[in-house]
């Protein structure tokens, strides 16, 4: 059973805020989806070991420096920037 507390805890981990009035509906919805996901636990077999899809290994980059991007480019898409840094203000009203 998925409880309100479960949903609150999961939302906290996922950094999503849930309003009080959404909680009932969301808990029910989550319960349905989890029940659906749970059907895999009716599988008799425990399954095969799975690695990565094409069993690839040892893909590396060489330790050679490539020039970084200009700072203006790096910061270009940020809403708030100060002193060449990304900025999160203490609070914003």
């Amino acid at each position: 059973m998925v409880s309100h507390d479960d949903v609150i805890q999961i939302a906290r981990l996922a950094k999503l805020s849930i309003k009080e009035d959404e909680l009932d509906a969301l808990t029910g919805e989550m319960q349905n989806i989890i029940d659906f996901a749970d059907t895999i636990n009716s599988a008799a077999e425990s399954g095969e070991a799975f690695d990565n899809i094409n069993n690839l290994s040892n893909v590396f980059h060489d330790d050679v420096v490539i020039p970084s991007y200009p700072t203006e480019k790096i910061l270009e898409n940020a809403k708030d920037v100060a002193d060449d840094c990304f900025l999160v203000k203490k609070r914003c009203d």
Partner: peptide, 22 residues
């Protein structure tokens, strides 16, 4: 190392903010 673990930016210590980024 010369470069970061998952890209080829330099690992040099310090530098102006956000100058060793991609």
């Amino acid at each position: 190392t010369n470069t970061k673990i998952f890209c080829n930016c330099t690992t040099a210590f310090g530098g102006d903010p956000n100058t060793h980024c991609c």
